[in-house]
Amino acid sequence: MVYDGIVIGLIVGFLRAGWRNGITALSQIRIKGGLIFPILLATQFLLYLLHDNVSFIQQYNGYMFMLVYAAGLYVLVINRKEKGFWWIFAGVALNFLVMLVNGGKMPVSVEAASVLDPIYVDMLKSGDVSTKHAMLDNSTVLPFLGDIIPLTKPYPRTQAISIGDVVMNVGIFIYLQHAMASRKMGLSLLNQNNID
């Protein structure tokens, strides 16, 4: 779900700013502690790979994800001056919160997951789907923060997402728009001055 906001944000951004301006604007993006993000992604990927092989990781997998989340939140906070980052922070925090109170796993409602492949629903019910997800039931705390929003046609992807995901993607979208489109205005002003 993280990618949707980025993809849509980029598409709209390029439409508004144009190719060259958009690329220039993107190349000028500076985020404090920006390197942490790829490291976090790599860690996540590594955890996913090693999950089945290393028992230590299997046992504490949920908490390790929590650590990854906390690091991500930290990077967001130090960048809070950037437009849209508060939204991203709020979204991630909401997701973090619901996972924290539910043993490190994101609760997924069966109802919402029914838009997905039926196999997935079965796996969810049997309780051994993935490292990150769990079925939402009566024991779930703060269920309304879980993955309860079904995304399906006409949206091009089929997914179950949480409100935190939505808020986070709104933030990403706002940030990209601001970074790309405002840059364009600045450039066009500059060009005008040159012509004069």
């Binding site: 409602s109 109802e111 919402a112 939402l136 269920p143 309304f144 309860i148 929003i149 079904p150 409100i163 939505v166």
Partner: peptide
């Protein structure tokens, strides 16, 4: 005390 589909509706309306 809303059902999950109510929550989806609430979120959509807030948005």
């Amino acid at each position: 005390d809303y059902s999950m589909s109510d929550w989806v509706m609430i979120y959509s309306m807030v948005a």
